[in-house]
């Protein structure tokens, strides 16, 4: 059982989701998977080597990660309420149209 390869596969799944998914919540889930992969690698190596400091760092990183997740989720909800969609392609299209309108007005 190798945790380095396990976390590598988790990282690959997260990056694949980040590149292919268009829904904002799915993108967030992909980011969470990438963070989980990094945590898994760090904690498993630290605990198998008997390094308490590595585990202590990860406990601190968990709370930071959660705070960042809260801010990202709040932004996602605000964006989807404002534009009425949570699809990234549609959001890009809306933003492009808005920029075109501003250019026409100038």
């Amino acid at each position: 059982m190798d945790f380095v390869i396990l976390s590598l596969i988790m990282l690959a799944i997260g990056i694949y989701g980040l590149l292919t998914q268009r829904h904002l919540l799915k993108v967030f889930v992909s980011v969470e998977l990438i963070a989980t992969a990094a945590t898994l690698n760090f904690v498993m190596l630290a605990s198998s080597m008997g390094l308490g400091l590595g585990e202590a760092f990860m406990v601190l990183a968990f709370s930071t990660d959660t705070a960042v997740s809260g801010v990202i989720l709040a932004l996602l909800v605000i964006v989807s309420k404002k534009y009425g969609t949570s699809d990234m392609d549609e959001l890009m299209k809306l933003e492009t149209e808005k920029l075109d309108e501003e250019e026409d007005a100038d």
């Binding site: 190798d2 390869i5 190596l45 390094l51 308490g52 400091l53 406990v59």
Partner: peptide
Amino acid sequence: LSVPLSAASGSGVPFGEAL
């Protein structure tokens, strides 16, 4: 599969002390 890792060179600080 497995990835060969170099030998552990930890200082062995327990979790409570490190935290």
